[in-house]
Amino acid sequence: MDEDVVHLNVWPGEWDLPSADPNCLATLAYCRFSGVPVKIHKDVNPWRSPSGNFPWMKHKDISQTKVTDIFSYLRKQKWGSDFNLSVKQSADAVAFVALIEERLLPGFLHLWWMERDTYTNITRPFYNKATPLPFKFWIPKRYYTRAEQTIYIGQGSQNISQADIDTKVYRDAKDCLTYLSHKLGDQNYFFGDMPSSLDAIVFGYIAPLLNAPLNSNQLTNHIRTFCDNLNTHCCNIKREFFPLSLEEQKAKEKKKVEETEDTEYPNKKRNMILAGVFALTAMITFAFVHGIISIEVIEEEDPS
């Protein structure tokens, strides 16, 4: 039945992930966990989404654009992976989501938007590429401002310097990762053998940190050295719920081959031709100037 399909508009994928945005990624993961019949659109026209944000879920006549709202809506429709949690576990899930929002989010945003390298090489090009034409002039900027506000206004007051906030958000984020790692322990998922909404949200944040071509940074390093179980958790979810389809795999391999060929000398042919033309011109000019070649203009005698 077409009516029963949930339409989901998300930011497109990157780095082998189905989406590059943590919220979209969390929603997609949740839908996969619970087998929601979902149709994914990678159309991110902010005028069509009611709040201008993504993910944007549309089911029958109802639209939702916030992760927690989408989860609770899906839960009400009896689609969900949280039904086998005990009451106490559900309470824990609520608390840990709050922990992530308060502790991890500011540091995460700081890494993607405030670190100059990441911003110019990864974040900005991604949003420029993903946003359709007229919007790309202001949408990335808007996200930037929002991230800045969340970090600097949400965290501190006027008595605290920016540098102190920078250290604080990273320290908080690393603490949060450690807490999550302790909570996960050596289980497969946070609450036993079945994935839950908390797993989806954690995956949304951790997967981009581990998969994007980021420079050496505090958060990724912290996960790799101190929270190895989070790393495994993320890889498991990716392997089990988001395996690359055959076409994607082929495309990836093709891209890889092209890249290895190209990366060493990206414009090999063009450069060779240019160099050849340049050398030839230089030699001919030299020959002319020194009189090795000379052109004599012989006026053809009129046959008549």
Binding site: E102, D175, L180
Partner: peptide
């Protein structure tokens, strides 16, 4: 960790 989560 749980305590920190509830405090958050």
């Amino acid at each position: 960790s749980e305590m920190k989560a509830y405090m958050a």
